[in-house]
Design a protein around this nucleic acid. Structure first.
Length: 410
DNA sequence: CACCGTCAAGTCGCA
DNA sequence: TGCGACTTGACGGTG
Protein backbone atom coordinates (compact mmCIF):
# COMPACT_ATOMS: atom_id res chain seq x y z
CA UNK A 1 0.00 0.00 0.00
CA UNK A 2 1.44 3.28 -1.10
CA UNK A 3 0.16 6.72 -0.14
CA UNK A 4 0.83 9.59 -2.53
CA UNK A 5 -0.12 13.05 -3.73
CA UNK A 6 -0.67 14.94 -6.96
CA UNK A 7 1.66 17.12 -8.99
CA UNK A 8 2.84 19.75 -6.52
CA UNK A 9 5.30 19.36 -3.65
CA UNK A 10 4.80 22.13 -1.13
CA UNK A 11 7.71 20.97 0.99
CA UNK A 12 10.30 21.79 -1.68
CA UNK A 13 10.87 24.74 -3.96
CA UNK A 14 11.03 22.48 -6.99
CA UNK A 15 8.20 22.71 -9.48
CA UNK A 16 7.36 20.88 -12.68
CA UNK A 17 4.65 23.36 -13.62
CA UNK A 18 6.47 26.09 -15.45
CA UNK A 19 4.51 27.17 -18.50
CA UNK A 20 4.59 29.49 -21.41
CA UNK A 21 1.70 31.31 -22.98
CA UNK A 22 0.50 30.09 -26.33
CA UNK A 23 1.32 33.42 -27.95
CA UNK A 24 4.90 33.19 -26.67
CA UNK A 25 5.55 29.65 -27.84
CA UNK A 26 8.89 29.05 -29.52
CA UNK A 27 11.04 25.95 -29.79
CA UNK A 28 13.76 27.55 -27.72
CA UNK A 29 11.48 28.70 -24.91
CA UNK A 30 9.75 25.34 -24.92
CA UNK A 31 13.01 23.42 -24.59
CA UNK A 32 14.26 25.68 -21.81
CA UNK A 33 11.03 25.27 -19.87
CA UNK A 34 10.86 21.51 -20.31
CA UNK A 35 14.51 21.16 -19.28
CA UNK A 36 13.77 22.95 -15.99
CA UNK A 37 10.60 20.94 -15.39
CA UNK A 38 12.38 17.63 -15.91
CA UNK A 39 15.25 18.65 -13.68
CA UNK A 40 12.77 19.47 -10.93
CA UNK A 41 10.77 16.29 -11.49
CA UNK A 42 13.70 14.18 -10.43
CA UNK A 43 14.31 16.49 -7.45
CA UNK A 44 10.70 16.04 -6.36
CA UNK A 45 11.02 12.27 -6.75
CA UNK A 46 14.14 12.39 -4.57
CA UNK A 47 12.25 14.46 -2.00
CA UNK A 48 9.51 11.83 -2.12
CA UNK A 49 11.94 8.98 -1.60
CA UNK A 50 13.57 10.79 1.29
CA UNK A 51 10.15 11.05 2.87
CA UNK A 52 8.98 7.52 2.04
CA UNK A 53 6.42 8.74 -0.49
CA UNK A 54 6.29 6.12 -3.22
CA UNK A 55 3.20 7.22 -5.16
CA UNK A 56 3.15 10.39 -7.21
CA UNK A 57 1.06 11.96 -9.94
CA UNK A 58 3.17 13.72 -12.55
CA UNK A 59 1.67 17.02 -13.63
CA UNK A 60 0.21 17.22 -17.14
CA UNK A 61 1.99 20.56 -17.38
CA UNK A 62 5.40 18.85 -17.31
CA UNK A 63 5.62 19.19 -21.10
CA UNK A 64 4.19 22.60 -22.00
CA UNK A 65 1.56 22.27 -24.73
CA UNK A 66 2.39 18.58 -24.76
CA UNK A 67 -0.60 17.77 -26.94
CA UNK A 68 -1.12 21.08 -28.69
CA UNK A 69 -1.03 21.62 -32.46
CA UNK A 70 1.58 24.29 -32.03
CA UNK A 71 4.09 21.88 -30.52
CA UNK A 72 5.88 19.67 -33.05
CA UNK A 73 9.15 19.60 -31.14
CA UNK A 74 10.42 15.99 -30.78
CA UNK A 75 10.87 16.41 -27.01
CA UNK A 76 11.02 12.70 -26.22
CA UNK A 77 14.07 12.40 -28.48
CA UNK A 78 15.72 15.61 -27.35
CA UNK A 79 15.35 14.69 -23.69
CA UNK A 80 15.76 10.96 -24.09
CA UNK A 81 18.62 10.78 -21.62
CA UNK A 82 16.89 12.86 -18.93
CA UNK A 83 13.64 10.93 -19.32
CA UNK A 84 15.50 7.67 -19.14
CA UNK A 85 17.28 8.71 -15.94
CA UNK A 86 13.97 9.67 -14.36
CA UNK A 87 12.54 6.30 -15.34
CA UNK A 88 15.55 4.49 -13.93
CA UNK A 89 15.17 6.37 -10.67
CA UNK A 90 11.48 5.46 -10.47
CA UNK A 91 12.22 1.78 -11.02
CA UNK A 92 15.24 1.66 -8.75
CA UNK A 93 13.22 3.08 -5.87
CA UNK A 94 10.02 1.13 -6.42
CA UNK A 95 8.01 4.27 -7.08
CA UNK A 96 4.68 4.30 -8.87
CA UNK A 97 3.80 7.32 -10.98
CA UNK A 98 0.64 8.25 -12.80
CA UNK A 99 -0.84 11.11 -14.80
CA UNK A 100 -4.30 12.65 -14.96
CA UNK A 101 -5.36 14.79 -17.93
CA UNK A 102 -7.57 17.69 -16.89
CA UNK A 103 -11.32 18.04 -17.03
CA UNK A 104 -11.05 19.47 -20.53
CA UNK A 105 -9.85 16.22 -22.05
CA UNK A 106 -13.13 14.62 -23.04
CA UNK A 107 -12.94 11.39 -24.96
CA UNK A 108 -16.70 10.89 -25.32
CA UNK A 109 -17.63 14.27 -26.77
CA UNK A 110 -20.06 14.29 -29.71
CA UNK A 111 -17.78 16.88 -31.32
CA UNK A 112 -15.17 15.15 -33.43
CA UNK A 113 -12.55 17.89 -32.98
CA UNK A 114 -12.89 17.62 -29.20
CA UNK A 115 -12.40 13.86 -29.46
CA UNK A 116 -9.35 14.29 -31.68
CA UNK A 117 -7.84 16.66 -29.15
CA UNK A 118 -8.66 14.26 -26.33
CA UNK A 119 -7.04 11.34 -28.15
CA UNK A 120 -4.02 13.48 -28.86
CA UNK A 121 -3.85 14.44 -25.19
CA UNK A 122 -4.07 10.87 -23.92
CA UNK A 123 -1.38 9.92 -26.43
CA UNK A 124 0.83 12.74 -25.13
CA UNK A 125 0.49 11.40 -21.58
CA UNK A 126 1.19 7.92 -22.90
CA UNK A 127 4.26 9.14 -24.77
CA UNK A 128 5.57 10.71 -21.60
CA UNK A 129 5.19 7.56 -19.49
CA UNK A 130 6.50 5.40 -22.35
CA UNK A 131 9.53 7.68 -22.61
CA UNK A 132 10.24 6.96 -18.94
CA UNK A 133 10.02 3.27 -19.82
CA UNK A 134 7.96 2.62 -16.72
CA UNK A 135 5.77 -0.49 -16.77
CA UNK A 136 2.01 -0.63 -17.18
CA UNK A 137 1.33 -0.12 -13.49
CA UNK A 138 1.90 3.57 -14.33
CA UNK A 139 -1.54 4.74 -15.32
CA UNK A 140 -3.39 7.60 -16.96
CA UNK A 141 -6.61 8.51 -15.19
CA UNK A 142 -9.59 9.84 -17.12
CA UNK A 143 -13.22 10.58 -16.34
CA UNK A 144 -15.89 9.32 -18.71
CA UNK A 145 -16.79 12.88 -19.74
CA UNK A 146 -20.05 14.67 -20.54
CA UNK A 147 -23.58 13.26 -20.57
CA UNK A 148 -25.06 15.25 -23.50
CA UNK A 149 -28.60 14.40 -22.47
CA UNK A 150 -28.17 10.67 -23.01
CA UNK A 151 -25.98 8.81 -20.59
CA UNK A 152 -26.15 5.48 -22.40
CA UNK A 153 -25.01 7.00 -25.67
CA UNK A 154 -22.34 9.00 -23.86
CA UNK A 155 -20.94 5.78 -22.40
CA UNK A 156 -21.05 4.09 -25.79
CA UNK A 157 -19.16 7.02 -27.28
CA UNK A 158 -16.48 6.59 -24.68
CA UNK A 159 -16.16 2.92 -25.49
CA UNK A 160 -16.04 3.53 -29.23
CA UNK A 161 -13.42 6.26 -28.95
CA UNK A 162 -11.34 4.21 -26.53
CA UNK A 163 -10.72 1.81 -29.40
CA UNK A 164 -9.13 4.65 -31.38
CA UNK A 165 -6.27 4.87 -28.87
CA UNK A 166 -2.83 3.34 -29.39
CA UNK A 167 -2.05 -0.05 -27.87
CA UNK A 168 0.10 1.53 -25.18
CA UNK A 169 -2.52 4.14 -24.27
CA UNK A 170 -5.12 1.39 -23.96
CA UNK A 171 -2.87 -0.38 -21.49
CA UNK A 172 -2.35 2.76 -19.42
CA UNK A 173 -5.84 4.22 -19.35
CA UNK A 174 -7.97 3.82 -16.24
CA UNK A 175 -11.34 5.45 -15.54
CA UNK A 176 -12.67 7.20 -12.46
CA UNK A 177 -16.11 7.97 -11.07
CA UNK A 178 -16.84 11.69 -10.99
CA UNK A 179 -18.82 13.90 -8.63
CA UNK A 180 -21.59 14.84 -11.05
CA UNK A 181 -22.21 12.61 -14.00
CA UNK A 182 -20.92 9.07 -13.94
CA UNK A 183 -21.14 7.13 -10.69
CA UNK A 184 -19.08 4.10 -9.85
CA UNK A 185 -21.59 1.57 -11.23
CA UNK A 186 -21.66 3.37 -14.56
CA UNK A 187 -17.88 3.51 -14.67
CA UNK A 188 -17.74 -0.19 -13.84
CA UNK A 189 -20.08 -0.96 -16.71
CA UNK A 190 -17.85 0.96 -19.13
CA UNK A 191 -14.89 -0.93 -17.70
CA UNK A 192 -16.72 -4.18 -18.26
CA UNK A 193 -17.01 -3.38 -21.96
CA UNK A 194 -13.37 -2.46 -22.55
CA UNK A 195 -11.60 -4.28 -19.74
CA UNK A 196 -9.64 -1.44 -18.23
CA UNK A 197 -9.17 -0.81 -14.49
CA UNK A 198 -11.36 1.51 -12.47
CA UNK A 199 -10.10 3.99 -9.92
CA UNK A 200 -12.58 4.59 -7.12
CA UNK A 201 -12.83 8.11 -5.70
CA UNK A 202 -14.50 8.02 -2.31
CA UNK A 203 -15.40 11.73 -2.20
CA UNK A 204 -16.93 11.65 -5.68
CA UNK A 205 -18.85 8.59 -4.60
CA UNK A 206 -20.27 10.43 -1.62
CA UNK A 207 -21.43 13.25 -3.93
CA UNK A 208 -22.63 10.99 -6.71
CA UNK A 209 -23.41 7.58 -5.24
CA UNK A 210 -24.59 4.52 -7.06
CA UNK A 211 -27.64 2.87 -5.62
CA UNK A 212 -27.81 0.62 -2.61
CA UNK A 213 -24.34 -0.73 -2.31
CA UNK A 214 -21.84 -0.76 0.50
CA UNK A 215 -18.45 0.72 -0.26
CA UNK A 216 -16.75 -2.56 0.53
CA UNK A 217 -18.99 -4.36 -1.98
CA UNK A 218 -18.10 -1.78 -4.61
CA UNK A 219 -14.41 -2.14 -3.82
CA UNK A 220 -14.61 -5.83 -4.43
CA UNK A 221 -15.90 -5.19 -7.94
CA UNK A 222 -13.43 -2.39 -8.55
CA UNK A 223 -10.55 -4.51 -7.36
CA UNK A 224 -11.50 -7.19 -9.85
CA UNK A 225 -10.84 -4.75 -12.72
CA UNK A 226 -7.13 -4.70 -11.81
CA UNK A 227 -4.94 -7.46 -13.21
CA UNK A 228 -1.45 -8.28 -12.02
CA UNK A 229 0.02 -6.31 -14.95
CA UNK A 230 -1.97 -3.27 -13.82
CA UNK A 231 -0.57 -3.40 -10.31
CA UNK A 232 -2.42 -2.70 -7.08
CA UNK A 233 -5.84 -1.08 -7.23
CA UNK A 234 -5.70 2.71 -6.98
CA UNK A 235 -8.06 4.77 -4.86
CA UNK A 236 -8.52 8.52 -4.63
CA UNK A 237 -9.07 10.00 -1.21
CA UNK A 238 -10.19 13.43 -0.06
CA UNK A 239 -12.28 14.78 2.75
CA UNK A 240 -15.14 17.11 1.86
CA UNK A 241 -14.20 20.77 2.02
CA UNK A 242 -16.15 22.34 4.86
CA UNK A 243 -18.38 25.22 3.80
CA UNK A 244 -17.63 24.84 0.10
CA UNK A 245 -19.46 23.33 -2.79
CA UNK A 246 -20.22 19.65 -2.55
CA UNK A 247 -17.35 17.74 -4.14
CA UNK A 248 -14.71 20.37 -3.46
CA UNK A 249 -11.49 18.91 -2.13
CA UNK A 250 -10.55 19.72 1.44
CA UNK A 251 -7.50 21.77 2.38
CA UNK A 252 -5.95 18.81 4.16
CA UNK A 253 -6.65 15.20 5.11
CA UNK A 254 -8.41 14.73 8.43
CA UNK A 255 -6.18 12.11 9.94
CA UNK A 256 -8.80 10.21 11.91
CA UNK A 257 -11.11 9.92 8.90
CA UNK A 258 -8.27 8.72 6.72
CA UNK A 259 -7.15 6.14 9.25
CA UNK A 260 -10.62 4.65 9.35
CA UNK A 261 -10.79 4.57 5.54
CA UNK A 262 -7.32 3.07 5.26
CA UNK A 263 -8.11 0.30 7.71
CA UNK A 264 -11.40 -0.44 5.95
CA UNK A 265 -9.77 -0.81 2.53
CA UNK A 266 -6.52 -2.39 3.70
CA UNK A 267 -7.79 -5.88 2.89
CA UNK A 268 -7.29 -5.02 -0.82
CA UNK A 269 -3.79 -3.52 -0.34
CA UNK A 270 -4.58 -0.57 -2.65
CA UNK A 271 -2.44 2.45 -3.45
CA UNK A 272 -4.11 5.65 -2.27
CA UNK A 273 -3.77 9.00 -3.99
CA UNK A 274 -4.63 11.96 -1.79
CA UNK A 275 -6.40 14.82 -3.54
CA UNK A 276 -6.12 17.67 -1.10
CA UNK A 277 -4.77 21.19 -1.29
CA UNK A 278 -1.86 20.67 1.05
CA UNK A 279 -0.53 17.84 -1.12
CA UNK A 280 2.65 16.26 0.27
CA UNK A 281 2.00 17.65 3.74
CA UNK A 282 -1.03 15.41 4.08
CA UNK A 283 0.81 12.55 2.40
CA UNK A 284 3.64 12.70 4.95
CA UNK A 285 1.10 12.92 7.76
CA UNK A 286 -0.82 9.87 6.56
CA UNK A 287 2.36 7.89 5.95
CA UNK A 288 3.63 8.71 9.43
CA UNK A 289 0.35 7.66 11.00
CA UNK A 290 -0.24 4.50 8.97
CA UNK A 291 3.31 3.28 8.39
CA UNK A 292 4.90 4.67 11.54
CA UNK A 293 7.88 6.93 11.92
CA UNK A 294 10.49 7.80 14.50
CA UNK A 295 10.43 10.64 16.98
CA UNK A 296 13.13 12.59 15.19
CA UNK A 297 11.02 12.86 12.05
CA UNK A 298 8.03 13.96 14.11
CA UNK A 299 10.15 16.61 15.81
CA UNK A 300 11.16 17.88 12.36
CA UNK A 301 7.54 18.00 11.30
CA UNK A 302 6.61 19.86 14.45
CA UNK A 303 9.32 22.41 13.69
CA UNK A 304 7.62 23.01 10.32
CA UNK A 305 4.08 23.11 11.67
CA UNK A 306 4.55 25.01 14.92
CA UNK A 307 3.85 28.55 13.70
CA UNK A 308 0.95 27.34 11.56
CA UNK A 309 -0.61 25.89 14.71
CA UNK A 310 0.28 28.86 16.89
CA UNK A 311 -1.36 31.15 14.34
CA UNK A 312 -4.67 29.41 14.98
CA UNK A 313 -4.46 28.73 18.70
CA UNK A 314 -1.77 29.10 21.33
CA UNK A 315 -3.45 26.39 23.38
CA UNK A 316 -3.07 23.89 20.53
CA UNK A 317 0.51 24.98 20.14
CA UNK A 318 1.22 24.11 23.77
CA UNK A 319 -0.66 20.82 23.47
CA UNK A 320 1.25 19.77 20.37
CA UNK A 321 4.52 20.69 22.05
CA UNK A 322 3.59 18.48 24.94
CA UNK A 323 2.56 15.60 22.66
CA UNK A 324 5.94 15.75 20.96
CA UNK A 325 7.84 16.05 24.24
CA UNK A 326 6.05 13.10 25.83
CA UNK A 327 6.27 11.05 22.61
CA UNK A 328 2.59 10.23 22.35
CA UNK A 329 3.07 9.27 18.71
CA UNK A 330 2.01 10.42 15.24
CA UNK A 331 -1.75 9.95 15.58
CA UNK A 332 -2.08 12.07 18.72
CA UNK A 333 0.21 14.67 17.19
CA UNK A 334 -1.45 14.98 13.80
CA UNK A 335 -5.01 14.84 15.00
CA UNK A 336 -4.28 17.77 17.30
CA UNK A 337 -2.76 19.60 14.34
CA UNK A 338 -5.91 18.87 12.29
CA UNK A 339 -7.96 20.34 15.10
CA UNK A 340 -5.89 23.53 15.07
CA UNK A 341 -6.02 23.82 11.27
CA UNK A 342 -9.80 23.50 11.37
CA UNK A 343 -10.18 26.50 13.69
CA UNK A 344 -11.33 29.83 12.26
CA UNK A 345 -8.85 32.67 11.87
CA UNK A 346 -8.13 34.43 15.13
CA UNK A 347 -6.63 37.92 14.96
CA UNK A 348 -5.12 37.62 18.42
CA UNK A 349 -3.31 34.35 17.68
CA UNK A 350 -2.32 35.58 14.24
CA UNK A 351 -0.76 38.73 15.71
CA UNK A 352 0.90 36.83 18.51
CA UNK A 353 2.55 34.51 16.00
CA UNK A 354 3.75 37.51 13.98
CA UNK A 355 5.56 38.66 17.12
CA UNK A 356 7.19 35.26 17.56
CA UNK A 357 8.33 35.19 13.95
CA UNK A 358 9.53 38.78 14.22
CA UNK A 359 11.88 37.77 17.03
CA UNK A 360 14.11 36.10 14.40
CA UNK A 361 14.85 39.55 12.99
CA UNK A 362 14.73 41.94 15.91
CA UNK A 363 18.51 42.07 16.24
CA UNK A 364 19.32 42.24 12.55
CA UNK A 365 16.50 44.18 10.93
CA UNK A 366 17.11 47.83 10.08
CA UNK A 367 15.18 50.53 11.94
CA UNK A 368 13.22 51.13 8.77
CA UNK A 369 12.28 47.46 8.54
CA UNK A 370 11.26 47.49 12.18
CA UNK A 371 8.98 50.46 11.72
CA UNK A 372 7.51 48.99 8.51
CA UNK A 373 6.65 45.74 10.24
CA UNK A 374 5.06 47.35 13.28
CA UNK A 375 3.19 49.85 11.14
CA UNK A 376 1.60 47.05 9.13
CA UNK A 377 0.77 45.30 12.33
CA UNK A 378 -0.69 48.37 14.08
CA UNK A 379 -2.77 49.27 11.07
CA UNK A 380 -4.39 45.83 11.32
CA UNK A 381 -3.10 44.57 7.98
CA UNK A 382 -1.71 41.38 9.46
CA UNK A 383 -1.35 39.64 6.11
CA UNK A 384 0.80 42.48 4.85
CA UNK A 385 2.88 42.19 8.02
CA UNK A 386 3.32 38.48 7.40
CA UNK A 387 4.31 39.02 3.77
CA UNK A 388 6.86 41.50 5.01
CA UNK A 389 8.25 38.87 7.37
CA UNK A 390 8.54 36.47 4.46
CA UNK A 391 10.57 39.07 2.64
CA UNK A 392 12.84 39.49 5.65
CA UNK A 393 13.20 35.74 6.00
CA UNK A 394 14.44 35.54 2.42
CA UNK A 395 16.71 38.55 2.81
CA UNK A 396 18.30 37.31 6.03
CA UNK A 397 18.13 33.63 4.97
CA UNK A 398 16.24 32.51 8.06
CA UNK A 399 16.16 28.85 7.01
CA UNK A 400 14.11 27.72 9.99
CA UNK A 401 11.23 29.99 8.97
CA UNK A 402 11.72 29.45 5.24
CA UNK A 403 11.65 25.68 5.62
CA UNK A 404 8.60 25.75 7.83
CA UNK A 405 5.03 25.69 6.57
CA UNK A 406 4.32 29.10 8.09
CA UNK A 407 4.30 31.06 4.83
CA UNK A 408 2.37 28.51 2.77
CA UNK A 409 -1.00 30.17 3.35
CA UNK A 410 0.06 33.50 1.85
C1' DC B 1 8.14 42.94 -4.79
C1' DA B 2 2.95 43.06 -4.31
C1' DC B 3 -1.02 42.99 -6.92
C1' DC B 4 -4.26 41.48 -10.26
C1' DG B 5 -5.99 40.48 -14.84
C1' DT B 6 -5.32 36.84 -18.12
C1' DC B 7 -4.65 32.26 -19.84
C1' DA B 8 -5.99 27.44 -21.39
C1' DA B 9 -9.44 23.87 -21.89
C1' DG B 10 -14.99 21.70 -22.57
C1' DT B 11 -19.54 21.26 -20.45
C1' DC B 12 -23.73 22.80 -18.81
C1' DG B 13 -27.32 25.88 -17.26
C1' DC B 14 -29.56 29.85 -18.43
C1' DA B 15 -31.08 33.79 -21.08
C1' DT C 1 -26.87 31.14 -30.14
C1' DG C 2 -24.04 32.92 -26.92
C1' DC C 3 -22.29 33.74 -22.46
C1' DG C 4 -20.91 33.05 -17.61
C1' DA C 5 -19.53 29.75 -14.10
C1' DC C 6 -16.69 26.22 -13.05
C1' DT C 7 -11.32 25.33 -12.08
C1' DT C 8 -6.35 26.56 -10.96
C1' DG C 9 -1.49 27.68 -10.81
C1' DA C 10 1.40 30.40 -13.28
C1' DC C 11 2.48 34.14 -16.38
C1' DG C 12 3.28 38.97 -17.16
C1' DG C 13 2.18 43.81 -17.06
C1' DT C 14 1.58 47.64 -13.76
C1' DG C 15 2.66 50.49 -9.90
Amino acid sequence: MRIGYACIALGTKHSTNRRLLLKHFSEEKFIDTLALNLKDLIEILKYNVKNNVRLFRISSDIVPFGSHDINDVPWAKIFQQELNEIGQYIKANDLRVSMHPGQYTVLNSPKEDVVINAIRDVEYHTAFLDALEVDYTSKIVLHIGGVYGNKKEAMENFIRNFHRLSASAKKRLIIENDERSFNIQEVLSVSNAIHIPVVFDILHHQCNPSMSEEVLEILKEVNATWSSLDGAMKLHYSDAAAGKKLGAHSDFVITNNFKEFYEDVAVYRPDIMLEVKDKDLSALKCIHVMEGTDKKILQQQWAKYKYVVMEKSYRHYKECSSIIRTEKGPLAFYSRIDEALSLPEDQGSYGNTLEHAWSYFKHKATLKEKSSFFNFKKSGDLIKAKKFLRRLAKKYKEEYLLNSYYFLNL
